[in-house]
């Protein structure tokens, strides 16, 4: 029998299939859209096509209360912390950059959440900031990443506001600034917002859809805080943590 963990994110729904040895045997991700139930059922259908599933489903994230399948609901912050501690087994700081949230979590030596903080009520420092700028400039995530790799010098973005940041960038382009430098500035803007959330100490784990899809950001995090890691497929960790929290 296999268990399913689902993290219903604002942009993407992430699912993991976990075997009886508590190992992830499959991953699935799709856009969440407006129908949370449908997004979750898509994950369940994908996994149950090849494996026998044990209910309930273990969930976290937005809109999980609306699902029509038997479920156990979890805080995504607690779930993510569980999965991160399961990997590193030591106290650490976590910065998770998702579609609309950026979270800071401090995990203690027992693997429990000591404190946490989320971004304030705007998109500054979240995945939406990057997405919106990329969309307005008609650049894919891959190209965004490549531009930053090419950059020799950062061109700093001042604006907190996503919309005004685009206006600022358009002004920079008009004045002849180079795209690699601008894109590097955009990434560093996200990183600066993350470090503003709380003091990062000892060991930093960066997770979420943004480091998975924009790997350059991990390198940039390391420039600011050397002892930084980002596990592979880190956007699935909260879903995995949901399962870990509930099985012995």
């Amino acid at each position: 029998m296999h268990r399913i963990g689902i993290d219903l994110g604002s942009s993407f729904t992430k699912g993991v299939l976990v075997n009886e040895q508590k190992e992830i045997v499959d991953y699935f991700v799709s856009r969440t859209g407006f129908d949370f139930n449908k997004a979750s059922l898509k994950v369940i259908e994908h996994f149950s096509a090849q494996h026998e599933i044990e209910y309930p489903i273990y969930t976290c994230g937005y809109g999980r209360e609306k699902l029509t399948v038997p479920l156990v609901s979890n805080s995504e912050i607690i779930a993510l912390s569980k999965a991160v501690y399961d990997i590193y087994k030591k106290p650490c700081s976590v910065i998770d950059i998702g579609g609309q949230d950026t979270k800071f979590i401090k995990i203690n030596s027992q693997g429990q959440v000591d404190k946490f903080k989320m971004n304030r009520k705007c998109a500054a420092g979240t995945g939406s900031f990057l997405e919106e700028i990329a969309f307005r400039l008609d650049i894919s995530a891959l190209e965004f990443n490549e531009f930053a790799e090419e950059a020799s010098e950062e061109i700093r973005i001042n604006s907190f506001c996503t919309v005004f940041a685009v206006s600022e960038i358009i002004g920079m382009i008009k004045n002849g600034s180079n795209m690699p430098g601008i894109v590097l500035g955009v990434y560093n803007s996200v990183i600066e917002r993350s470090f503003e959330l709380a003091l990062v100490e000892d060991f930093l784990v960066v997770t979420g859809g943004i480091p998975d899809n924009h790997p350059i950001i991990i390198k940039l995090f390391k420039n600011k805080f050397n002892n930084t890691v980002s596990p592979a497929k880190s956007q699935f960790l909260a879903a995995y943590g949901c399962v870990l929290l509930n099985i012995k």
């Binding site: 912050i77 607690i78 609309q100 949230d101 959440v113 989320m118 009520k121």
Partner: peptide
């Protein structure tokens, strides 16, 4: 308009679990 309810609920639920 200054209040993000979903985000606050996540924080509060997590805090209570903490």
């Amino acid at each position: 308009r200054c209040y993000s309810e979903e985000q606050s609920i996540i924080s509060i639920e997590t805090f209570i679990q903490q």
